[in-house]
């Protein structure tokens, strides 16, 4: 019971870092980016290649994965995504599905279709026993790391100048622009940051969730659940939604394995029917 809760929280924390960038970019530009998972996968593969072929220590891989995907995100945003902000949602969906497919085939080409198995670094291997319960050290690390990150993001969003500009732009893009806030620049930076965080989480998650070329599609639905259930106006919303999803997913698979993903999909549809703006979101006026 407790162990399941613990596993669920670890997965939820990871999902939060994976999806938070998507939530902010969606709230900011009303842009539906189904290719977000591709950045997470890229981060994961960067870490795998560095560790396996160049012997880079795990803890150094994390920042490298973050930087690589953040830069990739920034480049793609400036060259391609920027052309799509004023297009219809259909075109955004088509475009980002296209990018996802390309990323998946590329990953398959270079890395092969089989899942990559990464061992947790030696210092974090094994379990910690508390009483007669065993907790994986690595998952404890993931929870603490992501909690610190979430706290940091929340602080940055509420206390820094960039954060308040970002919030202003999310609340009302036109008024924010009128007040002299460079929304395009803020968006580019947020996009890069969000992609970087996804890449970081991809690397961080590689020892606990399997990394293979279908990762972007497999986790797309999870990201979208986090974003649509959590709402796009805060980051506490996606945070709570991620935890809920992580716990529900692990518990569902453990207690009622025959129903599988059924529970979370049904929950998501139910939430969206009763609160289309998400459980924790405010209705956005546009």
């Amino acid at each position: 019971m407790l162990t399941n809760l613990f596993d669920g929280v670890a997965l939820g924390m990871l999902l939060f870092v994976l999806a938070v960038g998507l939530s902010v970019t969606l709230g900011l530009m009303n842009f539906i980016n189904l290719a977000h998972g591709a950045f997470a996968m890229a981060g994961g593969y960067v870490a795998v290649v560095l560790m396996r072929h160049y012997g880079v220590p795990f803890f150094l891989c994390l920042p490298i994965a973050f930087l690589t995907t953040a830069i990739a995100g920034a480049i793609l945003e400036r060259t391609l995504y920027v052309r799509l902000y004023d297009k219809s949602h259909l075109e955004q969906v088509m475009f980002t599905i296209g990018l996802t497919f390309m990323a998946m085939a590329t990953a398959d080409y270079f890395m092969g279709a089989s899942p990559q198995i990464v061992d947790a670094p030696p210092s974090l291997a094994g379990n910690v026993s508390i009483g007669d319960l065993e907790f994986s050290r690595y998952k404890i690390f993931v929870i603490v790391f992501c909690a610190v990150l979430a706290f940091g993001l929340q602080t940055a969003l509420t206390k820094t100048r960039f954060g308040s500009r970002l919030r202003a732009a999310v609340d009302d893009q036109r008024v924010a622009q009128g007040l002299g806030i460079d929304v395009t620049k803020i968006f580019a930076m947020t996009f890069a940051l969000g992609s970087g965080l996804a890449g970081l989480a991809g690397a961080l998650g590689s020892p606990i969730i399997s990394l293979d070329p279908i990762f972007p599609l497999k986790y797309m639905i999870y990201f979208m659940i986090v974003v649509s259930v959590g709402g796009v106006t805060t980051i506490t919303g996606p945070f709570l939604a991620s935890l809920l999803l992580g716990v529900a997913d692990v518990a569902g698979k453990y207690y009622v394995p025959t129903v599988g993903g059924f529970i979370i999909y049904t929950l998501m549809v139910a939430v969206l029917i009763f609160r289309p703006q998400g459980l924790f979101g405010r209705p956005v006026k546009r």
């Binding site: 391609l80 297009k87 075109e91 088509m94 475009f95 296209g98 990018l99 398959d108």
Partner: peptide, 15 residues
């Protein structure tokens, strides 16, 4: 790798 070209077609179509 058909999927790659499929994705490329999608991207080019939209752009």
């Amino acid at each position: 790798y058909w999927q790659f070209w499929l994705g490329l077609i999608l991207v080019v179509l939209v752009l």
